[in-house]
Each structure stands twice: as structure tokens, then as C-alpha cells.
Amino acid sequence: MRGALGGGSRARQNAMRSGLVVLGAAAFGYLSFRVGFKPYLDRAQEAMDDTTHHGSASGAAAQPDHAGEEDDVATSKDPAVVLRD
């Protein structure tokens, strides 16, 4: 009788350990993907931001006093540059 109760506890521990290993492997894979493809992901994000930013003509018409600065805002990573407008 005691072996059956202990076996259930051991099975639960093994299942929890396996789940933890799977979650750790998934997290490691995700982080590896992000680090390995970071340059490509950054370029894709900048390209999407450029098309969104340059695609609307109303943005340039709404702020005529900032002529020629839209490229600085789109490529800048500085929060102060983005927030000043």
C-alpha cells in the first residue's frame, strides 16, 4: 500500500520537473531566437516604421515647422526626440 502512495507522489514530482524543463527550453529557445535574429528584427521594425511614417502625407502637413526632421524621429532611439513632438 505504501508503495502505491509513494509512486503517485513521485509521478507528480517527475511531471512537474518535466514541465519545468519544457518551460525552460521554450524560454531559452525564444531568447536565442531574439538574440540571434536581433539585427534582422531591428531592420524589419525600422522598415515598417519608415513606411508608416512616410506613408501618411497628413503628418508632414500637420507640422510644417518641423520640415526635414521626420527622418530624425523615425530612426532615433532617444525617447526625448520622440516625445518632443
Rank of each mutant, 00 (worst) to 15 (best):
A11T: 02
A67H: 11
H53W: 12
L23V: 13
V81T: 03
A27T: 10
A26I: 12
T75V: 05
A67K: 13
H66A: 07
M1T: 09
R17D: 10
P64H: 02
G3I: 14
L23H: 14
D50S: 10
R2D: 06
R34I: 15
S76V: 00
S18N: 13
H66K: 11
E46M: 10
H53D: 07
R2Q: 07
D71R: 06
P64R: 01
S56M: 11
L20A: 14
L31V: 14
A44R: 11
T51Q: 15
F37P: 00
G3A: 12
G68Q: 09
Y30H: 14
A60G: 06
D49F: 08
R12H: 04
D85E: 08
D50A: 08
P79G: 04
K38H: 14
L83H: 10
A57W: 06
S9V: 08
E70K: 04
F33N: 07
S56C: 07
A27M: 09
H53A: 01
Y40V: 14
R34N: 12
A11P: 00
G29S: 05
G8R: 09
S18I: 07
V73C: 05
N14F: 11
S9P: 01
L23N: 14
R34Y: 13
R12Q: 07
V82I: 14
A61K: 12
Q63H: 06
G24M: 00
L83E: 14
A80W: 02
G3Y: 15
R12M: 06
S18D: 15
A67C: 06
V82R: 13
G59C: 10
A4D: 15
A60L: 01
Q13F: 01
E70V: 02
H66R: 11
Y30D: 07
M16G: 13
Y40I: 12
H66W: 06
D49A: 04
N14L: 09
A4Q: 14
K77L: 14
D49S: 02
A15F: 00
G24R: 00
F37G: 01
P39H: 05
R17I: 01
A74F: 04
F33L: 08
Y30R: 06
E46D: 15
F33Y: 15
D72E: 12
D78R: 05
N14S: 12
M16E: 15
S9A: 08
D49R: 10
G8A: 02
D42C: 01
K77N: 10
A80M: 07
S32N: 08
V22P: 06
V73F: 11
A61C: 03
N14Y: 14
V22C: 12
A62M: 02
A44D: 07
G8L: 09
G68S: 05
R34V: 13
T52R: 15
P64F: 01
L20K: 06
F37Y: 11
S56G: 05
L41T: 03
L83I: 10
S32L: 13
Q63P: 00
P39W: 10
G59R: 11
Y30N: 08
A44G: 04
V35P: 00
E46P: 00
Y40L: 13
A27K: 02
A4S: 11
D49C: 03
V82D: 13
T75G: 02
D49L: 05
P79V: 07
A61V: 06
R10V: 00
V21I: 10
S58I: 04
D78M: 04
T51N: 15
R17E: 14
S18P: 03
A47Q: 11
M48L: 08
E70M: 05
T51M: 15
L41H: 04
A67L: 02
